[in-house]
Amino acid sequence: MNVLTTFIKQEIEKAGFKKAVIGVSGGVDSALSAFLTVKALGKDNVILISMPYKESSKSSVEDARLVGEVLGAEFHEIDITPQIDAYFKRFPEASKLRRGNKMARERMSILYDLAYDSNALVIGTSNKSELLIGYSTRWGDNAHDINPLGDLYKTQVWELAEYIGVPERIVKKKPSADLWPGQTDEGEIGFSYYLLDQILVAYVDLKIKKEEIIAFGYEPEIVEKVMRMIQRSQYKRKLPIICKIAQRTVDKDFLYFRDWGI
């Protein structure tokens, strides 16, 4: 935990800021990011934003408020229904996924606007499991300035959230992006995070080959699906690809503070 809070404090200050903005959904990931950031910066330097849609579950809205109450940080609730519905009046045939992606990007637009207004940076809430399989919206919930959870698997997020004092009802509830009524993360993925993380740890961290993972007793169809999700979502884990022409290129050679002559 100390590594994460130190990371948040150092990266915020290194960039010349003192405050942070976090979108709180009522889920465990955003709650953990909020708890860590308050520990790192103090509650007076953290702004929590809940952005429900008219179909958001009542429990998600209440749990987002609970995070604000427990932490005592500045909290705002902004209903995104008017702008979302106004846009989709033009596209009434739009799928649930398309609508969900639009909501995610609208929420991030609000976070960055409020971050600018408060001279703050946006804290990410995407965990390693989601990032590896692409379970996020590009320029939506996977957009941020710094991300303390990006190297924690979902199962690790649950453990750390329980340890740090995130309310039990948030830690224990079924994970959901709450994009439409009844939607759950594991329902969309097709299997549990516990199973997903076992395969991801083997493949990514331990560098075990697909065939060996299957030989351990995991269902070939599930292992194959995880591999496909990792491969197909690689573009989500990269900044827009720049065609390298010059000797020193942004995001390839010009990367670090030392490049500024500091």
Rank of each mutant, 00 (worst) to 15 (best):
S33G: 11
I245G: 08
V21G: 01
R65H: 15
I245L: 12
R232P: 02
Y87T: 15
V204K: 07
I242D: 08
S95R: 14
Y112C: 12
D79E: 12
P181R: 12
E188R: 09
E93M: 13
R107K: 13
A20K: 04
E188C: 12
E130I: 13
L48T: 07
N119C: 13
K19S: 12
V70S: 03
S25Y: 04
D253S: 12
L200V: 04
K252V: 14
V223G: 02
L71I: 06
S109E: 10
M103N: 09
R90W: 05
A143Q: 08
I241D: 08
I230G: 03
G261P: 07
G100I: 09
Y135P: 05
V226K: 02
R248H: 12
W260Y: 11
F191K: 03
S176W: 03
T137L: 09
V21P: 01
K209E: 14
L131R: 07
Y153D: 02
F7P: 05
G165V: 09
Y193M: 10
D253R: 09
K252Q: 07
S136C: 15
M51H: 02
K252D: 04
A20V: 06
M108S: 11
S60W: 03
A64V: 03
A73I: 04
I110S: 04
K172L: 13
I84N: 06
Y87P: 02
G26H: 06
K128Y: 08
I170Q: 03
T125M: 06
I47R: 01
L121N: 03
K128C: 04
K236N: 00
L206D: 12
I133Q: 01
K18W: 00
K238I: 02
G100A: 11
K18C: 05
E219G: 06
I230L: 08
Y203T: 12
F91M: 13
D141R: 12
I78F: 13
D141A: 11
S25F: 03
I242G: 09
C243M: 13
P220A: 13
S56W: 01
M1A: 15
V201A: 09
K102G: 00
D145F: 10
L114D: 01
